[in-house]
Simulated scan of single mutants.
Amino acid sequence: MNELDDFLEPLHQGVWEVAVPKESVEGSPGTGWAKSAINLPTPGTIASYRKGQYHVHETATEWRVHLDRYDPKVHPLLHLVDDAPLVFMISGTLLALIMDTKSALRRETSSLVAEQKAAWQLLLVAGFCMMLIGVLIGIDPLSSFERIVILGVRLSVLCLALVIIAKGLDPRSFRVVSGGRVLLGFGILAVGLTSFSLDLEWVASSFVLILALWAFASAVVSLKRTVRGRFDVPEGFYKRLGIGIASLLFAVLILAVPDAVEELLVYAVSAIALLFGFLLVLEGLGFRRRMKAEV
């Protein structure tokens, strides 16, 4: 039986994505593949794995593999700029949720039972709560933006500090194995704790500036790749050109009318929360119908 790696040669010959039927591969993706915890939501994806620049999405019937330009473990910033442009992250998340909602409407209730471990009441409550959060966020976008940014920045910095400190310690004996990592972790922890005393507007403005830099860098990289020709953009020339232009326009908008962009981003978060909540409600109702049918 072949391994997934045996089917990946076309990716180095200008092919953007390779779809490998699961019956052609023995078990899991194979040696060296690691499950990826953070990914852009993709319709139909069960799990995602990475191996260097290779990125595979597992669906019910296939392994769908593409080749990222940069390994996120080695070049995390370049990966964000080139492989995960900001406008693509936002639009992709919304599209995936819309597609998942449509598929939930068509799905057989028997499959819902197999997937859901929680009771249908819990799914309904969680769905309605998520939809309520989406509505509340959309009612007051600017205030919501500041709260989301402040909470997100603070939690991200604190979590990063704890991760770095943990990597500097032996998990069994808690002895220091890397004094530099531990010191760096505590330094970042101090920055995170200090952020609680910073002005909210200043932190929010800094976050918007970072988004502008992200979008502008993605625009430069994307447009440069389209200039080199179609072979350098196997994912699609016009798709990459569109991402580049959209990223550039988004960066300009952020700098020109930051308040309007803040509202736009919050409305996007609100829409994501509403769609996700609606999806949970649909799953819960489908589970409930199946339970009644079995009685």
Rank of each mutant, 00 (worst) to 15 (best):
residue 136 L to M: 13
residue 135 V to G: 01
residue 247 S to Q: 02
residue 69 R to P: 03
residue 67 L to I: 07
residue 125 V to A: 13
residue 255 L to Q: 13
residue 113 V to N: 07
residue 189 L to K: 05
residue 291 M to D: 10
residue 239 K to P: 06
residue 135 V to R: 02
residue 273 A to Y: 06
residue 151 L to F: 14
residue 156 S to T: 13
residue 157 V to N: 02
residue 99 M to R: 14
residue 78 L to Y: 09
residue 269 V to E: 00
residue 143 S to M: 12
residue 12 H to I: 04
residue 253 L to T: 08
residue 233 V to G: 00
residue 113 V to Q: 10
residue 229 G to V: 04
residue 147 R to D: 14
residue 289 R to A: 14
residue 144 S to Q: 07
residue 285 L to F: 11
residue 238 Y to A: 13
residue 126 A to N: 09
residue 180 G to C: 08
residue 288 R to P: 06
residue 117 K to H: 15
residue 96 A to K: 04
residue 191 V to L: 14
residue 96 A to D: 01
residue 26 E to P: 03
residue 155 L to V: 15
residue 241 L to I: 02
residue 295 V to P: 00
residue 157 V to H: 02
residue 29 P to I: 05
residue 256 A to F: 11
residue 211 L to D: 04
residue 235 E to V: 02
residue 279 L to F: 09
residue 138 G to F: 06
residue 23 E to K: 12
residue 163 V to A: 14
residue 91 S to N: 12
residue 223 L to F: 01
residue 184 L to K: 01
residue 253 L to V: 06
residue 279 L to I: 04
residue 208 V to K: 00
residue 24 S to E: 13
residue 294 E to K: 12
residue 78 L to E: 12
residue 258 P to K: 04
residue 170 D to Q: 09
residue 136 L to Y: 09
residue 32 G to P: 04
residue 160 L to N: 06
residue 270 S to A: 11
residue 29 P to G: 07
residue 109 T to N: 15
residue 117 K to V: 13
residue 97 L to D: 00
residue 188 I to G: 08
residue 198 L to T: 11
residue 101 T to Q: 05
residue 214 W to N: 03
residue 120 W to D: 08
residue 135 V to C: 03
residue 163 V to T: 11
residue 1 M to E: 13
residue 70 Y to C: 00
residue 263 E to V: 14
residue 35 K to H: 15
residue 118 A to P: 03
residue 259 D to S: 10
residue 98 I to V: 15
residue 18 V to S: 03
residue 93 T to L: 03
residue 205 S to P: 05
residue 139 I to T: 12
residue 245 I to P: 00
residue 280 L to R: 09
residue 223 L to M: 03
residue 236 G to M: 08
residue 265 L to K: 08
residue 95 L to I: 09
residue 98 I to S: 10
residue 247 S to M: 01
residue 151 L to Q: 11
residue 140 D to M: 11
residue 256 A to V: 12
residue 281 V to E: 05
residue 105 L to C: 08
residue 230 R to L: 04
residue 231 F to K: 13
residue 160 L to Q: 08
residue 263 E to D: 10
residue 84 A to Q: 09
residue 45 T to P: 01
residue 222 S to Q: 01
residue 204 A to D: 00
residue 243 I to T: 04
residue 152 G to A: 06
residue 203 V to Q: 08
residue 140 D to G: 07
residue 2 N to K: 15
residue 226 T to N: 04
residue 273 A to K: 03
residue 20 V to R: 00
residue 49 Y to F: 12
residue 165 I to V: 14
residue 248 L to D: 03
residue 82 D to Q: 08
residue 105 L to Q: 12
residue 120 W to N: 05
residue 96 A to E: 01
residue 191 V to R: 07
residue 227 V to A: 05
residue 133 I to T: 14
residue 87 V to G: 02
residue 129 C to T: 12
residue 292 K to I: 08
residue 289 R to W: 11
residue 251 A to E: 01
residue 121 Q to I: 10
residue 94 L to Q: 10
residue 212 A to K: 08
residue 123 L to Y: 10
residue 137 I to Q: 05
residue 31 T to H: 10
residue 244 G to I: 03
residue 180 G to H: 08
residue 260 A to V: 14
residue 38 I to F: 10
